[in-house]
């Protein structure tokens, strides 16, 4: 995974988001043990872990940058890439898998020209996968912009995503 440079033009508002990160580190007494907790806060505030913040956290907690990078890439929950405008998370747990996730993958690939784990070229939609979101009773389940939905069919998924990004499920012309 490559650490992406922060895009110019969307510089963080230094005041508030950085304050949240500082508050987390302060709560744990700037101990190196707080690394994972701090990265959680960074991701919550900024949407992803950018290089500038990784360096900032490394300095503040006095942890080598290599270790911060190691932790950030070890855990799946952390992402080093900025997310699209809208995100969908596909559950790939066992129950969802046997109840038709491969067909959902296929539908998304066909309709939105995006692979799982990627963001569309126009930055509108990120398609992520989760090991299991724990809604197995409602398999197959997905999360659309933070809202969980279950018992989905490929058609529903295309419609939902179309509604999110505003093209109402029409196939993107390649």
């Amino acid at each position: 995974m490559v650490v992406q440079e922060q895009k110019t033009g969307e510089k963080p508002k230094k005041d508030n988001r950085r304050k949240l990160v500082d508050a987390t580190m302060r709560r744990h007494g700037h101990s190196s043990y707080a690394l994972i907790e701090t990265l959680h806060t960074v991701q919550e505030a900024y949407g992803y872990l950018d290089e500038e913040n990784l360096k900032y956290v490394a300095r503040a907690l006095r942890v080598p940058l290599s270790k911060v990078y190691g932790v950030a890439t070890f855990y799946h929950f952390f992402t080093l890439k900025p997310q699209g405008e809208h995100t969908t998370v596909i559950c790939t747990g066992t129950a969802c898998y046997i109840k038709g996730v491969p067909a959902i993958f296929k539908a998304i690939r066909e309709h939105f020209d995006v692979e799982p784990g990627e963001t569309t070229r126009d930055g509108q939609l990120s398609v992520l996968t989760a090991r299991c979101i724990g809604s197995c009773g409602l398999a197959p389940a997905m999360v659309f912009d933070g809202e969980i939905a279950g018992l989905l069919k490929p058609g529903d998924v295309v419609e939902r995503i179309g509604g999110l990004i505003g093209n109402h499920g029409e196939a993107i012309k390649r």
Binding site: T92, T94, A95, C132, G134, S135
Partner: peptide
């Protein structure tokens, strides 16, 4: 840390 896919008891 309920990591098993297909398990949701702890949650």
């Amino acid at each position: 840390d309920e990591g098993d896919p297909g398990a949701f008891m702890d949650r």
